[in-house]
């Protein structure tokens, strides 16, 4: 149901640039105004969200330890799973951000007759997630051929690697195939697994559909007759980044669809779960060292509380303690 609703949203979003450019001729709006607005929303929203998170205190050091602490020198401590200093934390975060360490650990519980519970590795989510995120990053970096003149050094290298295999013409990029496959898997997984279907919200499907739509419109533009003139595309892009926007005449509707979906993604980003991109860096269970007893952590809002002091306590129990011959501060 929520998946259908998300699909409907996507269809509505699809119609907007089609009607906007083909019928109403608002090319300037879709080529310039909306992208600027989206980028502004993205940057301001992103910063706003980070600042909002940052304004919340981190009162305690609540590292989740996934390995041996550093105690005795003769016990091998796990510097990446229970990091004991900043370097360890950096390593742990790097593993988490670059390789999805925690998802790699994923298991699947299986209840059998007996009763007997068994656990097996479950790497599909990790693999699909990793493939999707890396593909997305590489695709994004490849797009800098449109946003920078001359194309930065990494573009040609990435293009060469990504398009190493001479399949089709223009050469099919492996990441293009990978991102579609991975996102499709992530979507089917939500549908197929009853647990996931149960927890999935419309917004979860929406994000997947949106990314899939971006990929699909881009692929249609590159490999099929829905071509856009990429010289025009670069002209538009360069106009945007140099704040002298121009809207070339001949850009096709597929380009506006692609651009509009990207704009929606950027605009939607700070207001959605997609902010996990920034959030992961601030996760208190991951980004703090497990050196609690070694280094003091200060709670900025620590306030005094009512306690039961020794004096109050001894006053209450002095008689029985005296009778039992226990040492006292005051005899009476």
């Amino acid at each position: 149901m929520s998946a259908l609703f998300a699909l409907l949203m996507i269809i509505v979003l699809l119609l907007i640039p089609i009607i906007g450019t083909e019928v109403l001729g608002l090319n300037y709006v879709f080529g310039v105004v909306i992208p600027y607005a989206a980028i502004a929303m993205f940057l301001i929203g992103f910063v706003y969200r980070i600042v909002r998170w940052a304004s919340s205190a981190v009162p305690f050091k609540i590292t989740t330890t996934c390995g041996q602490q550093k105690s005795h020198p003769w016990i091998k401590s796990s510097s990446l799973e229970a990091p004991h200093n900043t370097w360890g934390v950096i390593g742990r975060m790097a593993l988490e951000v670059l390789f999805f360490r925690s998802l790699f650990r994923n298991t699947k519980a299986d209840l059998r007759e007996g009763p007997k519970l068994v656990y097996g590795p479950s790497k599909w989510l990790w693999a699909a997630g990793l493939v999707f995120h890396w593909s997305f990053l590489i695709i994004l970096l490849r797009h800098f051929r449109f946003f920078a003149e001359p194309a930065p050094f990494f573009v040609s290298g990435l293009q060469a690697l990504d398009g190493f295999f001479q399949i089709g013409l223009p050469i099919i990029y492996l990441t293009n195939v990978a991102i579609v496959a991975a996102v499709t898997f992530l979507f089917l997984r939500r549908l197929y697994d009853p647990k996931l279907r149960y927890i999935s919200l419309g917004s979860d499907y929406f994000a997947l559909f949106l990314i899939l739509s971006i990929a699909a419109s881009g692929i249609l533009m590159r490999y099929t007759g829905f071509r856009a003139d990429i010289v025009d595309v670069k002209q538009l892009a360069m106009g945007l980044v140099s704040f002298h926007p121009v809207v070339p005449e001949t850009i096709g509707v597929m380009f506006y669809i692609h651009l509009f979906f990207v704009a929606v993604l950027f605009g939607y980003f700070p207001f959605s779960k997609l902010m996990h991109m920034g959030g992961i860096f601030m996760s208190p269970t991951r980004n703090m060292a497990n050196n609690n007893r070694e280094e003091r952590h200060v709670n900025p809002w620590n306030y005094p509380v009512k306690t039961h002091t020794y004096e109050e306590w001894e006053d209450e129990f002095r008689d029985v303690m005296k009778a039992a011959g226990m040492p006292l501060e005051k005899e009476k």
Partner: peptide, 29 residues
């Protein structure tokens, strides 16, 4: 966090400062 945000903004604004530094923004082939 501020350092992190600055790094993010610098990366996000890459095309802009690259264009300014390169100065070849509007030139069409």
């Amino acid at each position: 966090i501020i350092i992190g945000l600055l790094i993010f903004l610098v990366i996000a604004a890459f095309p802009i400062w690259y264009a300014v530094a390169g100065g070849k923004t509007g030139e069409m082939p």
